[in-house]
Design a protein around this nucleic acid. Sequence first.
DNA 1: TCTCGAAAATTGTTCGTCAAGTTATCTCAC
DNA 2: GTGAGATAACTTGACGAACAATTTTCGAGA
Lengths: 245, 245
Amino acid sequence: MRGCCRASRGGPVRGLRAQAITFDAKDPSMPIRLATQSIGDALVASLRERILTDQISVGAPLTEASVSTDYDVARQTAKAAIERLVGEGLLERTAHRSARVPELDEARVRDLYFARGVVEVRAYQLLAKRRLLTEEVGRAHKVFRAAASGTDVASIVQTDVEFHRALIDSLESERLSRAHRLIINENRLCLAQVQNAHLLGPEEITREHEGILAAIRDGDPLRAGELGQQHLEHAERKLLTHLQG
Amino acid sequence: MRGCCRASRGGPVRGLRAQAITFDAKDPSMPIRLATQSIGDALVASLRERILTDQISVGAPLTEASVSTDYDVARQTAKAAIERLVGEGLLERTAHRSARVPELDEARVRDLYFARGVVEVRAYQLLAKRRLLTEEVGRAHKVFRAAASGTDVASIVQTDVEFHRALIDSLESERLSRAHRLIINENRLCLAQVQNAHLLGPEEITREHEGILAAIRDGDPLRAGELGQQHLEHAERKLLTHLQG
DNA sequence: TCTCGAAAATTGTTCGTCAAGTTATCTCAC
DNA sequence: GTGAGATAACTTGACGAACAATTTTCGAGA
């Protein structure tokens, strides 16, 4: 029962997927890389997903012991996973106290959208300056449109985030993507907590997304930036009024 | 010899400072908070500082065992610290291999300055729009000017970074500051690796800083953004030519 | 009911152990 | 001598157990 790197362990919550095969089509001479995932990585991924989809209740303590028993891993492993998520802003903790999913309040929402705005607005301006629209972005947009025509609010939120992430990623800056992910993951956390409120207006979001894409396609940085800013402000306002009500 | 939260331990490398007293002047009724720091936190802080000041040689393996013995902490503790620094981008590691301080190459420098530009340019525009210049920013500028008139390259780098950080922090967005720190810390790592190259031109940097401040004071977002962009491009170009030479 | 103190819970840190993967070394055939 | 394969050494991944420090809970007594 001891040992490392077991491919799967079948914890009570969910089996941790431990391997994924990747193949570099560009350079077939290279040995095929098996992108294995350690237990710790898989644990972080699973917890992150559970937090982001509201399966871990806000404010309730997430103890090292509970994670340890739920997933049947050592406490040290659970601890490391929790610490990583604290680093991502998805959990909060002070010394000697259990981690919790942070509660959504007004200041937090404002701060989050502000930070998102700083990064995204400038990014959209740059994309427009370069008239850069990748296939990946087009794909993400289509996926969102498909989700938006349905009623599954969780997947609307999910694909919305993916759309914005695809835009940032298309600038191909590892560090910018990393910084943006830090912010938008917490944003996803926001949206998860209100996703049943039906305050989204999917068709309006779709229209706004298309406006941003059009501005980029037209090479109009100013418009791209402004539409991006407005898009965020709309979402922020809806969230805030919902919080107050 | 066992136990937790010892205030100091006197490891072979450096004693880990474990406490810092803070006092919330705004609400004197609150009990005074002793901002204690765990061994782990102090270890991360010490390692981060050593990496950022080039005291840990680039490319050399930083093993868990070596950190463990150097600081006289458990391997588990060393491991956790290393993992946090990997998360910050200050160390690189793949599974089952030792962490290393990443080597500076052209792609890395470009990416880094690009990401910095996206965040900072927009931030400076916003500061100009609000004509927002805090005391803290003024102080940071003065500190840099003092360092720039000296010859200690390390402190020039240090205070330069502090200046830009102060500007971002003055927007008072916790998340934006966090994202920015992620980027600029890696930038500091860059600068540390070439800090003996005397390619800085302190007086020119001072002039550029003052230009940005003036644009903000004048409420001229366009100029603030452009000067910020140029400032970064200058630094990037110098670094790149130095790397190629 | 309120307070104080003891007990329980939880985190911080350490040690020892083993498995698995990576790197260095050595040997042997050619 | 050189290259390939076996082998050993090193290093990380993960586990379990233990104890100290701190926070929380809860109950007894005023």
